[in-house]
Amino acid sequence: MANSITSTGHVDHLEKLMPHESIINDEGEHVVLPQHRHHFETAEQQREAGSFGMWLFLLTEIMFFGGLFFAYLLYRNWYYPAFAVASNQLNVPEGAANTAILITSGFFMALGVWAAEVRKKKLLVLMLVFTTIFGVAFLGVKADEYHEKYEKHHIPGASFSTSMFTNPPVNPKTGKPDELPLAPDMAQHTEIFFFLYFAMTGMHAFHMIIGIVLLFWLTWRAHRGEFSSGYVAPIENFGLYWHFVDIVWLFLFPLLYLINRHPIH
């Protein structure tokens, strides 16, 4: 392996172990990226470290949501009738639509990462915009769902009411109630379901809001061309975060909305 000679003519035998970042731009010139942090030896190292760091952060998120998922698992097991009946209060078309919306948002995000990798600035900005739009749409549907819960007195706390579980309303189409009535103590446990519903979807929505704020910032930076010369790490790493938030929802939807959609009359 021949020793390479740097621009100052000094033979640097360490060059073969630590090449300077070697991004070649469209003109075929070597470019030192301004985002190169000097405690990293190569841009490659910086990118992989950043990605690894984001994955470790996502691990903390898995464990954070994990506690809530366990609480859900426990109480669904203990109070299945209450959970089943309460779950049927959730709106499946809205939940399913939200799932599709979030998957679509993730799809656009993935395309955005691709656009950054192949350095298509306009496409990247467009993809980020679509990602944001679908993300906001998700939150809009969620807000509508929360509002409905508020009106039905299903928000845990002082205003929570179990009356529709102990005395289920009659369905005008069938002339019978949709659900069997619950005993008062079991009906009380629907509050735990709704608490977990709000806690888990609320925590999820909180992460989405943070993501959307970051998306605005990233879109603006992308528009300025910061990610079209090979520096894709922020887009890539944000994509990891966004997809993770998507995965959480992929589990929340069936667990919360689809417990028992075929109640026996």
């Binding site: 995000m109 994509g239 997809h243 998507d246 995965i247 589990f251 939807f253 689809l258």
Partner: peptide
């Protein structure tokens, strides 16, 4: 079934969307 499908979707997102 619901969890199995959710797990499959999660694995696909992890393998491909998240590279």
């Amino acid at each position: 079934i619901a969890l199995a499908i959710a797990c499959t979707k999660a694995v696909i997102v992890i393998l491909f969307f998240m590279h």
